[in-house]
Measured scan of single mutants.
Amino acid sequence: KRPMNAFMVWARIHRPALAKANPAANNAEISVQLGLEWNKLSEEQKKPYYDEAQKIKEKHREEFPGW
C-alpha cells in the first residue's frame, strides 16, 4: 500500500467533521469538498501535513525497501 501524501494526511483528519456536517453527502461529494478546502489553504497552512507525509514516506521506505 502506498504511503499517504499531504492531502491524504489532512483529509483523514477533516473528513469526519465534513461528513457529520453534511450527512446527505456521499463519499465522492465529500472528497470533492475536501479537495476544494485543501486548495484554499496557504502553503504555510499545508506545511505541517507535507512534513507529516514526508515522515510517513520515510517510515514506509524503511519498512518496505524496494517497494
Rank of each mutant, 00 (worst) to 15 (best):
R12I: 05
K40I: 03
W67L: 13
E37W: 04
A17I: 15
A6H: 00
E52I: 05
K40E: 06
A21H: 04
E52N: 09
H60F: 12
W67G: 15
E58D: 13
I56P: 13
L34W: 01
S42N: 06
P16G: 08
L36F: 04
F64N: 11
N26S: 14
N26P: 04
L18C: 05
P65A: 10
L36W: 08
K1P: 03
A19C: 09
Y49F: 11
W38F: 01
K1I: 11
Y49P: 01
G35Q: 15
I13P: 01
S31I: 05
H14F: 03
Q33R: 09
E52F: 08
K1Q: 13
A28L: 05
Q54H: 10
K55E: 12
A11G: 03
A17C: 07
E37G: 04
R15M: 07
E58Q: 09
A21V: 06
K59L: 12
N39A: 14
A11I: 00
A53T: 04
K47P: 00
P16L: 09
R61K: 15
N22S: 08
N27K: 13
V32W: 08
P3S: 14
W38I: 00
R2I: 01
M8W: 09
G35M: 13
A21E: 13
N27R: 12
D51M: 10
K57P: 14
A17N: 15
N5P: 02
E52V: 06
Y49V: 01
E29V: 03
W10D: 04
A11Y: 05
A28G: 09
N22Q: 11
K40T: 05
A17D: 14
A6G: 08
N22L: 05
P23K: 05
P23A: 05
K46R: 04
D51C: 07
K55D: 14
K1C: 03
A53V: 03
K59W: 09
Q54S: 10
S31A: 13
L34K: 02
Y49I: 01
K55V: 06
K47S: 07
N22M: 09
K46M: 01
E44Q: 13
W38Q: 01
S31H: 11
R15L: 07
E29F: 03
I13L: 12
Q54L: 13
K40S: 11
L18Q: 05
K47F: 03
W38D: 06
V9T: 06
G35F: 09
E52L: 06
K40W: 00
P3C: 08
R61T: 11
I56L: 13
A11S: 13
A28S: 11
K46G: 01
L34D: 00
M8C: 09
